[in-house]
Every structure is written in structure tokens, then in C-alpha cells.
Design a protein around this nucleic acid. Structure first.
Lengths: 330, 330
DNA sequence: AAATAGTCCGCAAACGTTTGCGGTAATATT
DNA sequence: AATATTACCGCAAACGTTTGCGGACTATTT
């Protein structure tokens, strides 16, 4: 069986194609009688408008693209869920593409978005991305982009981020209150603005509070890298009494090292992280974390992108406040 | 700036649209000279064929749909990654839809697939699904469906699954060889075929090996539930020396209980699970597991779907062998 | 009774491709 | 020198919609 078209309905009922088309969308030009006849037949034939024809004709794809490093990440997953919900409400479809943190795949994905004439894009860039041509090509075609989470350093773009400074400061304050004195701050790629922001706030909050706190800042790009670094740190004679991890990935590595060294949490060492919440709850005791809600970020991002598509929003940077969720790890 | 079309290229170069179209796909009718001129201009204008027009004309969407309960699951995530890789190679795009285990959303998603004229579908059904009309509608339109992981009970469908019995037996054999005598088997919802299959194979393998092994089978539906059960089990005087978890979710709960009771792995207690591999590697020592590779399943599923789309494969059920990945947890 | 307004519907163009067919000019064959 | 072949390119239809415009007919107003 082949799919049913307007033409088929028109022919079996003896109407013109335009009448059928109008009837199906309740155009006032069509009488109730014929409208009902048409609707009934369309229904029984499971008519679905051919989206390719529709989009070709209307020049509006009703498609939005999402580009993330990996969908397995719980932060992105909840972000995507939020977008998905909104898209369902507003008649949009989603095209999800993963970059695996590879700038080449990122560029290729941008090309795919262009090819599919997406109406708008959500993009979380990879750490290595230096060349942003593939994104500017999109903006040249009037395809609005909302960067989220990991965003380019340039001005004049749409950016939606967690309040990274606030999150860093929140974690630092918590550590200070817990009276920790030898702290390891585990941060990600220093080329990312998310890293510099969190690092700056974390560091300056600690320095402002007391000179007696020893802070050692480490950078790791992978979970394995983090594990190794923390392993080394725990082997030294001057034992740290608190570890801060700015991401889930780093937390995973740190926790493996702590388990390996059999350090008791929170007695021997305190742990705090910035996270979406899934990973911290895998351990006992559950890890205290500053929450970065992908879901809320998604909702905020979507409304902004919609405004951009409608042409009634200028490029701007939005931030979302974060809250602290207490486990028993400090 | 508006996007460039064949027409625009044709006009600026003084060729017909058909010549431009043919030149761009290296049709032998076009001379090398004009082909190069056209390719050059197209390149400098960043020409991308309008996929809506292409698909409308060719009646081939080059789009495949994936329906999963949730993309946050690591098993599905790796499945999707495999599909994504293959799609990239074969010029397909992907449309990912989540069902949240809701049969209504599942039906709605099937409608979206129809509307977007997907070339094929991968579907993992939700546990509650009783009505399969939305799927039969797709097959009526010659849209092949490959069910994977959680599949309908009916015959004559394309199904790709893990070898669940084998996985259960493999884990049991490993425990037996490790000479464990007091085993806890932690299983999921007994109504699911995946549970009964794994349980049956696990149990009978153990019973067959020795009468001296004490096996206690527990059922949990959530991570919290599992944590509580294992917590109780570890509190009893007769301490278990091995725990088997049939899923990541259960493993998470079990590990929290073990950490809480501060049991040393593998000295005091051995742990083994069935998993995709992500969760077992979060701990130190890493947990030994029987691998259910979503990635491999994805590769297998894709080649089968491609065969179905090409019309050279009949409905059949495929199973994928599982292998044991050793950690240091037993 | 004539003019006006309103109701309901069809014609045809357009969106950007792909592709069968036919045509012209140049080249090769007898 | 006449014919057959080849190389290269354009015409036009089709995919399934949407939508401006106009046409026919009925109902209302003057």
C-alpha cells in the first residue's frame, strides 16, 4: 500500500486538490458538509501530509537541530528532554547530532543542519573548536543559533548558560564553611569559558575567605586523567581534606581514585561537585553537588530560540541560577 | 542571505538547471570543463541541495527513525551511536524519539515517523504496550521495522535481541568457577521476558553445577529497592560471598549498599553483573560483567534494516552473543 | 429588476529537485 | 561526401503541497 495524498482524496470524492487541502485545515471557504466528508475519508485513510512537500512549499522546515558532545551525558539528556517537550507542543521536530568533541564532526553536523534547512539550532561546542565558520554560515542563512553550556568566547551571540561563577562560588563557600584546609580543585579544559568562569569564582572565593586554605588546582580532560591526578595527590604526604570536581566526568575519576586508596568519605576526605545529579547519587554516601539543571536550561533556551526564529529577540546571554544539593560527602 | 539553489547557479553561469544538477553529481553527459566551472561556483556559494526537494522528488527520505524509552540509558545510547555511525556512512539522517515507556507517546511517535516518511524504523517497545496498530500501519506503508531489546511477542517480525539465556548462564558459570557458595541473584521485574530468561538460565546453571551452592533470588524494580534488599541481606548473620545483578539499575543499588556496609570487593564479597559497561567501570575495582553491547546490537540491527529497505530480507529474529568482561570484582 | 454581497469551490503557479527524452553540433565511419 | 556515431546540453514533467485569484451560483439589498 502506498501512502495517501491530497490528490487521492480529491479524486475519490470528486473535489479539487485545493478544496481538500483547505478542508483539512478548516479553512472558512469550505462548507461544513464537504469538510466533514473530506475529514472523514482522510481519517479513515490515515492521511498524513507529506512533510517534504509541505516544507518545500512553505519554506519552513519546522525542524530544530541539537548538537551535543554526547547524548549519554545526563545533563544533555535532560536538556534534550526539555526541548523535546516544547517541540511536541509547538509542532517542531528534532534532529539530534553528536559531536564526540570532534571539531570535524561538529562542522559536518553543521553542514547537515544546513542541508536539512533547520529552523534553528541548539549547540554545545567542543573544547577544541577554534574555527567557527560552520556556525557563521548558519547565521548567514538566517538560521538562529542558541549556544548553551559550552559556548564560544565571542560577543554578540545567543548564549544560555548556568551561572557558572555562582556555581563555583557556591561550592567554595560550602567547603569554607566545612572548615577544610587542604583543597584540591579539579577542573576541565582551561580553554573553555565554562572552566575559566568556574575556576575564577571558586579560587577567588576561597582566597577571599582565608589565607590559611591551601588550594591546589588541577586540570584534567578525561575521567582517566582525573583518576590518575587524584591518585597521585592522595599518595603525597600532605593529604588533602577536600576535593572539588567541576563536572561529572572528573568526579567519576576522582571517586575511583578515592575508592582505590580506600579513603573514607566524609571522614577522611570531603567531596563536592557540580553536576546534574545522577552521578553523585550513585555513591554511598551520596555526593554533595551544585545542581546544574539541564531541564531548566532547555526550557529557557527553547523560549529564546523561538523568539529568535520569530525575529523578535536580539543576541543576548542568559544565565540560570544554580542551587546546592546536599549529600553526606562533606 | 538566502540559500543557493540550482537555479541560481544555472542563471549566473548561463547553463540550464538540469546541466547544473548533472554536473554536481558527475553525470558523464557533462563535459569536464563545464563540470569544473559549476563545481567551483557551487563550492564557493556553499551549495547544499534542498533535502525537501530531493526527497519529494526521489520519494526516498533517507531518514530512519529510532524509538527508545529514554536516551539517557547507556545501552540505548551506544545502540544509537552505532546507528549514527552507520547512517553517516550511508547517507541517512536520524530521527530519535523517546517514549518514556508511555504507549500513547509511542503511538504518537509512530505517527510522526509516518508523517516524516521515514525509510525505516528501530523500535524498542515499552513494557505496557498492548496495542500494536501504530506499528502495523507503518508496515502497511512498506516501512520496515526492526524491533530491538524489548520486542513484541508476535511472530513474523524483525527482532534483534541479546542472547539473554546465554548471558545468565555465563555469569553463573563465572561464579561457580570462583568457588562461591552463598550467592544472591538480584533480578528485575519477573513479568518481563528478559527477566525470566536470565533468571532461568542463571538458576539452572547453578543448580546443575552443585547442590552445595546456596542461591537466594531477589527481585527489585528500582535502584532504591535493590539497595534496601542488599542492605538487609548484608546485615544477616550468614553473609553472602557473591552478588549477581541482572542490570545496571540493580547494580547501582547493590553497590551503594556494599559501600555503606563497607564490604571489601572482591575480598569479602564478589560482584558480577550484566551491563553495557559504563556503570561497572565507575567503581574501583571495576566490576566484572557480561557485556550486552548496545553498540554491536546497533550494528547488527542496521545491516538488517538496510537489507529490509532494499527488500532482500525476510522477517527474522537475530540474537547477539554476549561476552564476559573481567574487572577485579570477583 | 438590477446591483451588490456572500458562499463555495477550482485553476494554476510555485517551492527545488531529478530524469527521460530529444536535439544540435562535432567527430568518426564508410 | 554522405552517413552514422558520439558528446554535450536543454525541455519539460513530476513529486505533494499551499495559496492568490477568479468564477459560478445563491442570497441580499436597493
Amino acid at each position: 500500500m502506498t501512502s495517501t495524498t491530497l490528490k487521492k482524496i480529491a479524486e475519490t470524492l470528486g473535489y479539487s486538490i485545493s478544496t481538500v487541502s483547505r478542508a483539512l485545515k478548516h479553512h472558512p471557504d469550505i462548507s461544513a458538509a464537504t469538510r466533514n466528508k473530506i475529514l472523514e475519508l482522510a481519517n479513515s485513510l490515515d492521511y498524513e501530509p507529506n512533510s517534504f512537500a509541505v516544507h518545500l512549499r512553505t519554506q519552513d522546515s519546522k525542524l530544530i537541530g541539537i548538537m551535543v558532545p554526547a547524548i549519554s551525558n545526563f545533563f544533555y539528556e535532560s536538556f534534550i528532554s526539555a526541548i523535546e517537550e516544547e517541540c511536541r507542543k509547538n509542532g517542531y521536530s528534532i534532529m539530534i547530532l553528536q559531536t564526540a568533541n570532534d571539531p570535524n564532526i561538529e562542522a559536518e553536523n553543521a553542514r547537515l543542519f544546513r542541508q536539512n534547512r533547520v529552523s534553528g539550532v541548539f549547540a554545545c561546542i567542543s573544547a577544541e573548536t577554534q574555527n567557527f565558520d560552520h556556525f557563521t554560515k548558519l547565521t548567514e542563512l538566517n538560521i538562529p543559533i542558541v549556544f548553551f553550556d559550552k559556548v564560544p568566547p565571542m560577543e554578540g551571540l545567543n548564549k544560555v548558560c548556568m551561572a557558572d561563577e555562582q556555581a563555583g562560588a557556591l561550592a567554595a563557600t560550602y567547603i569554607i564553611k566545612a572548615n577544610k584546609k587542604r583543597i584540591i580543585g579539579l577542573f576541565g579544559d582551561p580553554r573553555l569559558s565554562i572552566t575559566t568562569k568556574r575556576l575564577f569564582a571558586f579560587k577567588s572565593t576561597i582566597e577571599l575567605a582565608s589565607q590559611k586554605i591551601a588550594l591546589s588546582v588541577l586540570h584534567a580532560n578525561t575521567s582517566e586523567n582525573a583518576e590518575q591526578l587524584i591518585n597521585e595527590a592522595l599518595s603525597q604526604s600532605k593529604k588533602p581534606d577536600a576535593i572539588f570536581c567541576m563536572s561529572d566526568e572528573l568526579l567519576i575519576g576522582a571517586m575511583k581514585a578515592i575508592q582505590q586508596k580506600e579513603r573514607k568519605i566524609p571522614k577522611e576526605i570531603g567531596v563536592i561537585s557540580i553536576s546534574n545529579g545522577f552521578i553523585p547519587k550513585l555513591f554511598y554516601p551520596e555526593i554533595t553537588y551544585v545542581e546544574t539543571s539541564g531541564y531548566k536550561l532547555g526550557k529557557l533556551s527553547f523560549s529564546h530560540l523561538l523568539a529568535c526564529i520569530a525575529g523578535l529577540a536580539l543576541p543576548q546571554e542568559l544565565t540560570l541560577d544554580s542551587i546546592l544539593v546536599e549529600g553526606r560527602s562533606m
